[in-house]
Nucleic acid binder design. Structure first.
Lengths: 247, 247
DNA sequence: GATCCGCTTTTGTCTATACAAATAGATACA
DNA sequence: TGTATCTATTTGTATAGACAAAAGCGGATC
């Protein structure tokens, strides 16, 4: 069920994480692990290479492999975009523009975005469909001062998110995830009941302190979730490489 | 000077970074790359495995390898223990144990966790309060085989999340965020209406390949959100961990 | 003592082969 | 028409053997 190289990896990882093998400790040589696990050197090598890749150990020819310096604990999660993910997973994704209008920023929205009232914007509403079912409602604001070419773009062929990625460099993004109950209009579009729990992702993207775009993506709670794995193995490389006489 | 697997890795990486191969694009099969580079499949496999490890491509048997989604769609958020998070944001946090019981894993839950039925567990339910208002309902399962000392711990002084963080090393965590409607019991505890949209964070933590704990934290949608900043770096985890908190 | 040379150990890479696991697609069957 | 089974393809894992590269070590030489 669990492969040998994975088991070796985990055995060593566990000992490092549990502090049984402190930073600087020499890990058994490949040929010793070959004896211990009764497998080939390539298998051991794969496990140790993976540990080195993750920065948990450092390896030096003729010297050996050593536990790297202390770990930095971080609990991080990554969030993937549903449309891209859907395509990758072999699902059918399509979208439809519900609204496309050039407006001026009203005071309330301007305050929310931290941009001046009256700025030219393009307001876009899209409905994303995965395998024939409505999966997400996208409500986007594009700052036309930052992306003038959006003024004439129809977004008929390329979804706005993808188009913007290719078009505009960005330097910062802020994400907010919240749960909201669907209002009547949203529920109708997403083909769900009113009041249904929906997962909303809000993303605002800046290019050097000026907003490029602000997007709100609303998913029905029963059709979407964010998921991600995390390995707490960010380890620094030791400043001075360990030497043979390390105690 | 540069090894073959490294060259293959870099060739593909370059094409992905330059956008020549867009997300979703199929990467040549291993046997095709073997032909192209005139090397063995193991060498190609090493390169592609490394790309998959880095999250630049996804691989599926019988199907092939594909360019993964763009980095902006794989944003990173950090998720902390509730009490730590509340304290950081300058809020007053307290909690109350609603249930603390040693049980055996039933078949359904066991399957969900990927652990054997009948294993000894500690089931813990906590209600977290922030600034006097119920903020989160925590439903936790601790595998007693992995954390024997939890059997006698009362969790009266230290919240279970924090206690476990200090107590048990972990090597992998999986997070899932979803939106759910509150059932009657949940709504009553969280002092909200039934059917209210709630944000649920599910986290399963492993040490090696064995589950340490599984926790479900349910927040009322109007009192909580996840938020995080993200700055683009090279593909991978950003230099500075983003923040997360209330607002 | 200093320098160079070669020996040895350990990791790094590569090959050719083999079988296992997953699964899309085709085929047979109820 | 739907379901079960088979087949072919692709990735995943493992092996045994080989040579290369890095580097510590000791010895020979100046």
């Amino acid at each position: 069920m669990v492969s040998i190289h994975q088991r070796i990896f985990e055995d060593i990882e566990t000992r490092i994480m549990a502090g049984i093998w402190q930073p600087g400790h020499r890990i058994p040589f490949e040929h010793e692990l070959v004896q211990e696990y009764q497998c080939s050197r390539m298998t051991v090598n794969k496990a140790l290479s993976a540990l080195a890749e993750r920065g948990m150990i450092t390896r030096r020819r003729k010297v050996g492999s050593f536990v790297a310096s202390r770990q930095i604990d971080r609990t991080v999660m990554d969030i993937q975009d549903i449309s891209t993910e859907a395509e990758l997973a072999g699902h059918d994704h399509s979208y439809r523009i519900l609204r496309r209008k050039i407006e001026r920023l009203d005071a309330a929205t301007a305050a929310r975005l931290g941009e001046p009232t009256g700025a030219d914007i393009l307001r876009l509403h899209c409905l994303h469909t995965v395998d024939g079912k409505p999966n997400a409602l996208e409500r986007r604001i594009i700052m036309l001062a930052m992306v003038p070419s959006a003024r004439t773009e129809s977004f008929a062929l390329v979804p706005p998110g993808k188009w913007l990625l290719d078009m505009v460099p960005w330097s910062k993004a802020r994400h907010v995830i919240r749960a909201v109950s669907a209002d009547a209009a949203t529920a109708r579009l997403l083909e769900t009941e009113r009041g249904k729990a929906c997962l909303t992702l809000i993303r605002q993207t800046w290019q050097s302190s000026r907003t490029v775009t602000h997007v709100e993506i609303i998913h029905p709670g029963d059709r979407f979730q964010f998921a991600g794995d995390f390995h707490p193995t960010e380890r620094g490389i030791p400043d001075q490489p360990p030497r043979s006489g390390f105690s």
